[in-house]
Amino acid sequence: MTAGGAPAGPPAGPPAGPPADAVVIEGLRKVFHSGLVAVDHLDLTIHRGEVFGLLGPNGSGKTTTIRMLCGLLTPTAGHASVVGHDVAREPEFIRTKIGYMSQRYGLYDDLTVYENLRFYATVYGLHGRARVERLDKHMEAIGLTSRRDQLAGTLSGGWKQRLALACATAHEPEMLFLDEPTAGVDPAARRAFWTSIYQLAQGGTTILVTTHYMDEAERCQRLAFLSRGHLIGLGTVKEILEHFHQPTIEDVFIELQERDEGAAA
């Protein structure tokens, strides 16, 4: 599968900054109360400024991993650090440095576009003049200035997605987690979304994204494949294709999914 006529390619190299990795995961494990092992002995490192794709079939542990990194879930075992801080020990500090956007968007349908943005900006600690300037900049950037006073609930999927991204990045986070951010939006909106992602990456933001769209996967600098909580493939698109002897990422994905179903049966 091709990149779907995407205009932008992955940004070149990580920008200058502290030479630390943005995410370091060591032996991470999550067992739910039901006994389900969602993530098992996961080791993974994400470099600063990278656009990193997390792939895998439904139930492979992508969302659980992201939720542990964001402090939404507590790891059962293992360690994970985000922007140099431990997720179990300093979740509140990490929260000031990260942005998170899930496929549910987390917008308030009964607040207007501007009110949503303002709310999240304030919760992230922006006040006074700085807040006004930042909000204006973001409203301009997402092209929602004319819809400023429209209720978020009445926006189309693509606009909601843009607003959600603006809310998640109002505080200009070092690290951005995107959990299936483009599920259910049209191709034009997806393309526009990825343009924004690359802009953020060029500005130095590290991005971890999960997706089901293979053209999106091919836009990531590095990919990790998860299956039933395990890491089963890691590398650049080229490396992955060579490793699995498949022509496209989609073929790799389908092969993994079949293998997964075979193992589960």
Partner: peptide, 14 residues
């Protein structure tokens, strides 16, 4: 239900 609580939890709000 709407997913906004999850969104709030990842913010630094105490």
């Amino acid at each position: 239900e709407r997913g906004t609580l999850e969104q709030l939890i990842v913010t630094p709000i105490g």
